[in-house]
Nucleic acid binder design. Structure first.
Lengths: 228, 228
DNA sequence: GCACAACCATGACGTGGATCAATGTGGCTG
DNA sequence: CAGCCACATTGATCCACGTCATGGTTGTGC
């Protein structure tokens, strides 16, 4: 039996629309790799030799300014594609947040295969469009939302990502640190912490421990997140 | 002679890699439309019937929050593609900044044609990747840069966009209002205005009039824009 | 040439979130 | 199990930018 046949994320990943035969061609050039938490997967500006598909775990992607300021531009979950390229180099750095498993594709061979599998190209275009729409939402968040609104939006984003894998769940895991969240939301760790305790004291969420949050009032969180 | 043959932006637009024959199939479903300044091209959440290609003028795309806060997520120039879709609706609103000329494609017919012209699909994927990389840069700007750094980055972006059409030029046109710039940079009009006069008093730029800026010290602007 | 409306610049003031600092807490190691 | 370290929370203070207000400039229609 083929390893991909059991893949839990195939339906939502790039390889979803391929036939068994086409998938075989794809897996022929693929390797499976794993990363421990906090391990660097690749670095911004490094020559982009491989592209990836997340199958397990959480990855954060980020860009740094020369003086050390960091912007986390996204968290990736199983099914997400990893390895945006800007003139032959990676456009961002990528680091494992949790124990992570990835499908690794050599870039040149994947690009060759892309020419022969238009279905794959179509799917990638669809995923890129989706990413682009998400990027626009993130710009609204970063440019126009208050700290409270940002944190509420973040929790709902996490819930949605969690539910893409399994069933609806009001208890969500928060595997990243407060610092990671802050760098994602354009805030400081302190402000994230304060906003979370505020939402908690307003009974919109309950902080079970540092890595787990119970969403008590989703409708309320949503209202806050859009500014109503 | 075919209208597209004289198109100044063909090389950088989506239709660039097509053969004369393929281009003909594309233009068969196309219409040319124009918009006066401040005219709405389409609105966020409206059903996405058409996609566009900017051939002349400047377009701004933006998203609004229910209470009226606005985030301009991009300015589009000749050669840019317009009409990102999120479940059958537009992902943002689009408005003409200057007198604007666009190629208009009915969405369903374009999607059909896309299946038959893989070269077009490839080009769109390339353009989407490029957009995605630009979106990441914008997130760094919105999440981590100071007002001064944002305005410096904006001026350099404008210069780059200008030079994509013609030769290098230190005198750049700024067709959008201070408010548009503010909503693009996640600032207020007042802060944009103050930052511009500050850069001017530091002799990095000269404000010829409200719509024209002379870039005096590009290297300096660049240093500021990346935070050095 | 006057009335009016956009748009922009600039000053005075207020504030949300950054910064600085202290304390708490769980996990790991020797 | 003591000591340490990374991470989180909470409080006190500060400041970059937002808000509010004024006046100037340009264009436009009557």
């Amino acid at each position: 039996m083929h390893p991909c046949d059991a893949c839990k994320v195939r339906a939502i990943a790039a390889c979803g629309p391929l036939s068994a035969d086409e998938r075989k061609r794809l897996t022929a050039i693929m390797k499976t790799v794993t990363f421990a938490p906090h391990r660097l997967i690749f670095m911004e500006t490094a020559p982009a030799a491989s592209l990836y598909n997340v199958t397990d775990g959480v990855v954060k992607i980020y860009k740094m300014m020369p003086d050390g300021r960091r912007q986390v531009t996204g968290f990736l979950f199983p099914g997400d594609f990893l390895g945006l390229i800007q003139n032959d180099s990676y456009a961002y750095s990528a680091e494992a947040v949790t124990e992570t498993r990835l499908c690794q594709f050599p870039r040149v061979r994947l690009e060759m295969l892309l020419r022969e599998l238009p279905k794959l190209e179509q799917r990638l275009l669809g995923m890129a469009s989706h990413e682009l729409a998400a990027a626009q939402d993130q710009m609204v968040l970063l440019g126009r939302k208050s700290a409270r609104e940002r944190v509420a939006s973040f929790l709902l984003m996490l819930a949605k990502a969690t539910e893409r894998q399994g069933p609806q769940a009001d208890l969500i895991a928060v595997p990243m640190t407060r610092s990671d969240i802050a760098d994602y939301l354009g805030l400081t760790m302190e402000t994230v912490s304060r906003s979370l305790t505020q939402l908690s004291s307003e009974n919109l969420i309950r902080l079970l421990n540092e890595k787990h949050v119970h969403l008590i009032d989703r409708a309320g969180l949503h209202r806050i997140s859009v500014g109503l």
